[in-house]
Nucleic acid binder design. Structure first.
Lengths: 242, 242
DNA sequence: CGTATCCTTGATTCGCTTCAACATTAGTGG
DNA sequence: CCACTAATGTTGAAGCGAATCAAGGATACG
């Protein structure tokens, strides 16, 4: 029976995040086999890296608590945040292709991940029917998500991007049993801006504008969605820019 | 022995695209097993869809000849091209997550694809060691590629985007045994623009600018890279905008 | 050969960035 | 606990890069 670094048993079958995580949709029998998969948990302090671009790829990570951002850096120092990840989501998939990570994963708050050795995952995928399929789904979902971000970055104006971002966050908080209308963002305006391809001032202004129009109530990182339908409308009916 | 719609045997082991395609790196023995995988080939005429967003997902496709674009559409008609695909590259991975395709795949010229039934792929992945791993690599590469596009869209200025695009095309033509310096683009300025988050006029202007500065010779869709190093420099040393 | 599509270029407009100043919050150590 | 400081967030004014509008030219296609 696997023992974690902090002496707690790590078992997918016992975890309340199953429905959000890799084991989603698997039978009890399959689930019990999955318990071999998670070797250890690892705690990451706020602002610390789970991995960095260039690190050799050995494992993927399931977020057990907390949240992360992933980013890529250009030689000249420019940063692009490629995603924000919450509990149950999988980190590190970028590393498979070249056997090295291609982005940085940074904890936005004190967090904890389940370490899933990739070799073991491949092994077990041969045996456990549902695991292979579920893993493919997780990767595919990441691809679809990325296409959505491209849509954001390539075809939407600043306010549309922020609206889409807020609705996406709301939806993900909801899936985790939190309020859809009220939540706390763990990232800075600058990080949101980088993700959305905007400067932090533009993000701040868009927040203010939303507040004026009674769409949201903003208090620093604390957000209350007053009119989600209004936000949705903003995305769809905004006069096309490009 | 599988017979294709046009009466030709479809066999990965006989295909000269192995090094670019799904079977890359697999042993001869594994390769022979792969021949069961490709059920048929399918020809797609220029401007026709290989699949559309919403279509039920059943297969992935390896491009045997020609090229494609993938795009997503917003309700209000806005289009975002999410990628251009060349021979040996895999289409349709977006469909796994929801069992339906989430984007459109359109042939940029008369093309041909190998149809790989997903159910068969999963089945065979359990038996053929290298296939599973290679498939994971293909998906992971797609994720990494998407992150690169996000960097483009989120942090680069117009000319940097086009320079990065041209260098990327050049690199992919090279991998296929074509000239690195001279090639023919199959997509319109509008499609390039959509991909790069720019209007077609901006793309055209950037091309003209590159021509003035002796970086490339442009004649409609025919491109000659005169100074690839100069293009590379453009990407890295341009004063940061956002 | 005629027509639709695609591309180029110019003038103008507009949205976002840049620069700057200030407010607020969080974190630190006396 | 409070003073101090750094980090973060807000807002205003000005500038700039890309979009928009518009017209003409080149090319491909039936």
């Amino acid at each position: 029976m696997p023992i974690t670094m902090n002496g707690l048993k790590t078992a997918c079958s016992q975890c309340n995040l199953v429905e959000l995580c890799l084991p989603f949709g698997m039978s009890d029998h399959e689930l019990s086999r999955l318990d071999e998969l998670v070797g250890a948990r690892r705690k990451i302090k706020r602002q610390h890296n789970l991995y960095r671009a260039g690190d050799p790829f050995e494992a993927i990570y399931a977020i057990r608590a907390g949240s992360f951002k992933t980013d890529v850096l250009l030689e000249d120092g420019r940063e692009q945040v490629t995603g924000f990840q919450m509990t149950g989501e999988i980190l590190g998939l970028d590393g498979i292709s070249t056997e090295a990570h291609s982005c940085n994963a940074v904890a936005l708050e004190d967090s904890e991940v389940c370490v899933i050795a990739y070799s073991k995952l491949e092994e077990l995928s041969h045996e456990v029917e549902g695991l292979q399929h579920q893993f493919h789904k997780v990767m595919s979902r990441e691809i679809v998500r990325d296409h959505g971000v491209m849509m954001l970055l390539g075809s939407m104006r600043a306010e549309e991007r922020l609206a889409a971002f807020l609705l996406n966050m709301s939806q993900r908080f909801t899936a985790r049993g939190f309020s859809a209308a009220e939540f706390h963002l763990r990232m800075t305006r600058e990080e949101i801006g980088s993700y959305l391809g905007l400067k932090l001032e533009t993000v701040s202004r868009a927040f203010s504008r939303f507040q004026e129009e009674q769409l949201v109530a903003v208090q620093q990182k604390h957000i209350r969605l007053l009119d989600p339908a209004g936000l949705k409308k903003l995305i769809q009916h905004q006069p096309a820019m490009r």
